[in-house]
């Protein structure tokens, strides 16, 4: 019974959702609209779950003095401050529905003065690590690696003014050999072909997995007991 009921729910809901999308006449059209709204309402609860999980994980680490527990204090403090200034709409227009980002709100200050520079810094650090990793690992060791290296080089050059300068002297009849044009060609043809194959593969995989779930062949989500 503990397995049969969830399997039945999955089968009925899965089948209904498919019918709701593919069959336009009523009542399926209304069902499609309503299910979309249900989905969005459920999605909101993920925030509560996420917040609770963050508190539990980091609270537990601080309590047990686990690895890097001091960083967890920073995480919890950041979470608490943002939550209080956001929910409290401190410094902003009164009311539950007031704009969080209205001029003068503390939340706007936290967003622009703390979150923005921290996020930008973390992302900008990638440039340094990419340079270091490229120096150590981007080697023409095999024919495949050489093709990747040459392609990457052309794309890097083609996305800057240097590509145009280096091959700008080529006559019009050979303009297809200019680095920006070669970069565009690599992106438009080999890249698109590869990406399209990946997208189709993922779509087929998602369809197969969905069917396995709906038909009860895939039961991993039910747990082990």
């Amino acid at each position: 019974m503990r397995r049969t009921v969830p399997l039945m729910i999955t089968f009925i809901v899965g089948l209904t959702l498919i019918l709701a999308v593919f069959i336009p006449p009523e009542p399926f059209d209304t069902m499609n609209r309503e299910f979309s709204v249900y989905f969005d309402i459920i999605a909101v609860f993920a925030f509560v779950l996420g917040g609770g999980n963050l508190l539990r994980l980091h609270g537990d680490r601080v309590y047990r003095r686990g690895k890097d527990w001091k960083f967890s204090i920073v995480t919890l403090a950041g979470f608490a401050v943002t939550l209080v200034v956001g929910l409290g709409k401190i410094g902003g227009p009164p009311g539950v529905r007031g704009d969080l980002m209205a001029p003068g709100t503390w939340f706007r200050f936290v967003f622009n003065a703390v979150l923005t520079p921290l996020s930008a810094t973390m992302f900008a650090l990638l440039a340094f690590y990419v340079a270091s990793a490229s120096f150590r690992a981007f080697r023409a060791k095999t024919p495949e690696a050489t093709i990747l290296l040459v392609s990457g080089f052309i794309i890097l050059l083609g996305r800057t003014f240097l590509g145009g300068i280096l091959t700008g002297w080529l006559p019009d009849s050979l303009s297809f050999l200019t680095i920006p044009n070669l970069a565009d060609w690599i992106m438009a043809w080999p890249n698109t072909a590869g990406q399209r194959a990946i997208v189709i593969g993922i779509a087929l995989g998602v369809t197969a997995t969905s069917l396995r779930l709906i038909l009860g062949i895939e039961r991993g989500y039910l747990g082990s007991d």
Binding site: A131, S134, F138, L149, T160, F161
Partner: peptide
């Protein structure tokens, strides 16, 4: 311009890495 220069430096290091290899 700064992005192009960063790309240029990265490319130089890739070339250097391959020369060493």
């Amino acid at each position: 311009v700064p992005q192009a220069m960063a790309h240029f430096v990265i490319m130089l290091f890739i070339v250097l890495g391959n020369i060493i290899y």
